[in-house]
Design a protein around this nucleic acid. Structure first.
Length: 276
DNA sequence: TCCCAGGCTCTCT
DNA sequence: AGAGAGCATGGG
């Protein structure tokens, strides 16, 4: 049972279960969060800067109003979803139960769809430090200055640019993909918001109209921003882990929650270095 | 230095 | 329809 208190402009959230900030914010689903030496996380989402950390019995949202929490962060951190129940269901499989022991506090973020799409286009054939650097430069050069931090630039803003304009990002061959995505999102060739209610198959096909968007990038967008938790992004780690642990096929009890289970297995496979 | 990074496109069978 | 090269860039 979640309860909330506001003290001195900060919001205290009590009663959270299965909510680890580090497991959630540092598992490769979002690229704009950093932690400091004290284990406090700070980042930008929804044009808002947030500092967030945990003390003995609360998750503390610094300088956050009740309305910002209710209208934005509650959904962003997927606090409505009962992860305990999902873990119970998918733990019918012993291997999944074992994997979850290593990170039972992962939550799937509900990010802005355009930001997720653009970020995962940048992520292809790339590594996390560089992905973060490119996204930082994207926001600093084309986002809005919100007072020491920058918003993620809108698709409309990017749609008006040329490949040469993106040279400051040093993102290589991905620049043309970013611009194609921005154009198709802006002119509603790909109507991102409409994909929330679309079937998984329709949504996947729609996203893959974009040059540079294949199954992996499309699945990440669907999972991390559009509420399609049945999406199952398949990267090199997951492919190896799936072959080793499940002979390539997800157990029946996990299929409804494939995307969430994917995160548990991804985390587990990297800790255990499965396939190496 | 050289290898590779949470892929995708293009080309060639 | 399946396999493999090439892609921009820079961190380790």
């Amino acid at each position: 049972m979640l309860t909330v208190k506001v003290k001195n402009k900060d919001l205290y959230l009590y009663g959270t279960e299965n909510f680890s900030l580090s497991e959630t914010l540092d598992c490769g689903q979002a690229f704009r969060w950093e932690s400091d030496d004290n284990g406090r996380w700070h980042g930008v989402a929804g044009n808002k800067y947030l500092e967030i950390y945990r003390d003995a019995d609360a998750v503390i949202f610094k300088n956050t109003s009740l309305s910002d929490f209710k209208n934005f962060w509650y959904n962003y951190f997927d606090l409505e979803r009962n992860y305990g129940e999902i873990i119970k269901t998918v733990s019918q499989n012993k291997t999944i139960a074992e994997a979850i022991k290593f990170a039972d506090g992962i939550r799937i973020l509900n990010q802005d769809p355009w930001e997720a799409l653009c970020s995962f286009i940048i992520s292809q054939n790339n590594n996390i430090p560089r992905i973060k650097g490119i996204i930082d430069r994207l926001c600093e050069n084309f986002g809005e200055n919100l007072g020491g931090y920058y918003s993620f630039p809108t698709a409309e803003t990017i749609s008006k640019l040329y490949v040469e304009d993106l040279e400051v990002l040093r993102c290589g061959f991905r620049a043309k993909y970013i611009i194609d995505a921005a154009k198709k999102v802006t002119d509603k060739t790909v109507d991102l918001e409409a994909l929330r209610g679309a079937s998984y198959e329709v949504a996947l096909e729609s996203l893959m109209q974009i040059n540079g968007v294949g199954p992996k990038v499309a699945d990440c967008t669907l999972l991390f921003s559009l509420g399609h938790i049945e999406a199952f992004p398949k990267d090199v780690w997951i492919k190896r882990a799936m072959d080793m642990l499940f002979d390539g096929e997800l157990p029946e009890c996990a299929k409804e929650y494939a995307g969430i289970v994917q995160q548990y297995i991804f985390h587990y496979s990297r800790i255990k270095k499965i396939g190496y």
